[in-house]
Amino acid sequence: MPESNRGVALGAGAFLLWGFAALYWPFLSASAPAEILAHRMVWALLAMCVFLLLARRGWSWLPALLRDPRKLLLVAAAAVLISLNWWGFIYAVSITQTLQASLAYFINPLMTVGMGVVFFSERLRRTQWIAIALGLAAVLVMTVAYGSTPWLSLLMASSFASYAAVKKYVNLDGMQSLTVETLIMFLPALGYVVYLEATGAGTAFSVSPAHTALLVGGGFVTALPLLLFGVAARRVPLSIIGMLQFIAPTMMFLIGWLLQGEEMPLSRWIGFGFVWLAVCVFVYDQVRNARRRSAARASVAEVVEEPPVSRQG
């Protein structure tokens, strides 16, 4: 299989796993979302250590990071933001609000683009402004549809967009970065787990062996798609990754609507209609811009390779 095709397959696999995660966390309904999150942090570190060993990556990069307070602070901020995103997702699917999780990851790319304007002074193309306007319209319609602001969606989307913005300044690959992020959150998470078990409020060993195994497995459910995504991102263009990322929220939408039976009145259909229209405009802009850049590079290559014309007489 060509490298590009293998990259697409790995990327699709990552987003499929993220979509199926909406079915995983409800199996842990005996635990509170905060306890699930703590176990997710603890066991994600174990999973990342296993993957680092399998990939033979080693730890030679860690001392340099620990000697850089600025970079370490940025990684710590990223750890807090991704933890907030994880909690929001776990809480949403635990209370059967998977559609809010779906909405979050549909509007996340638009929010990321908006942050580029606010914090990095990036200039947007007209179609990107149209996509953002449609995304804002979708949030307003959803506010009416839910009877209140869809704060879970906004929390998940804003925390992940902020996470991406912080990671822009951290020169680590995905595997290294997630390892350090889970390492930073490990002690607070472990302390919370120990506290729950000591006070009798924990569920890690009091429900069933299957429940315990699912808590441990949450670390691998967290780490595996990120590992696949990291490999895919190095093998395929970002424009392809940008289109693949909508696999997960589409699956979450179908899970929430068809499997979990969440209500979809007309107002929500209208809201999601605005979201999907925004996504279509966004993807169209990404594809068109990628083609323009490819054509420009091809033109430059032709000019460079063209032999000089000899002049006679």
Rank of each mutant, 00 (worst) to 15 (best):
L154I: 08
E262M: 04
M175D: 11
P188H: 03
W18M: 00
S4F: 09
I270C: 11
R57I: 05
T149Y: 13
A232G: 13
I95D: 10
Y192W: 15
N289C: 11
L110E: 03
F160T: 02
W25G: 13
S208F: 07
A198V: 00
F20H: 09
M156P: 01
G242F: 04
A55I: 00
G219R: 04
S239T: 14
S267T: 08
V279S: 09
L124P: 08
I270K: 06
F272L: 10
A223V: 03
S206Y: 05
L73S: 15
L17Q: 05
V221H: 03
A223H: 06
R67K: 14
K167N: 09
N289P: 00
F205K: 11
A232H: 09
W269V: 14
A44R: 04
G313N: 13
P109D: 04
G11N: 06
A189R: 08
G273D: 05
S94G: 14
T149G: 00
D285R: 08
S206Q: 10
F282E: 07
L99E: 10
W43I: 09
I184H: 11
V304R: 14
V117E: 07
S148W: 02
G114N: 01
V207T: 07
F106T: 08
Y91E: 07
E35Q: 12
A189K: 09
I247P: 03
L37C: 02
A223Q: 06
M264D: 10
L10A: 15
L266W: 13
G147W: 07
A104C: 05
V144P: 00
S148K: 15
S158P: 01
I240Q: 10
A164W: 01
L226R: 04
W86V: 00
L17K: 06
W25S: 13
F160P: 02
L266V: 14
S239P: 02
P69H: 13
E122I: 08
S29C: 00
L172N: 02
M111I: 15
N171M: 06
M41C: 06
Q97P: 01
N289A: 15
H39L: 11
M264L: 15
C280F: 14
W276Q: 02
R67E: 13
L103N: 11
S153H: 08
H39I: 07
S206D: 10
G19I: 01
A290Y: 12
S310R: 14
G7P: 05
A30L: 06
F120T: 00
I107K: 05
G200E: 03
W276C: 03
V216D: 07
E181Y: 09
P2C: 07
M115C: 08
L152D: 06
G58E: 05
W151Q: 08
T250Q: 05
E197K: 09
M156G: 07
V275G: 03
A12C: 03
W18Y: 03
L17S: 07
F106Y: 15
R70A: 14
M252N: 14
F220I: 04
T212Y: 10
P63R: 11
T199Q: 13
G114Y: 00
A137M: 14
A55M: 12
E263T: 12
V8Y: 12
T222H: 09
N108Y: 04
G116E: 04
R311F: 12
A138E: 04
A278R: 12
T212M: 14
V193L: 12
A145N: 08
L187A: 15
P33C: 10
Y163A: 07
E3Y: 02
G174I: 04
L190M: 14
A248E: 05
A101F: 06
W59C: 05
F253C: 06
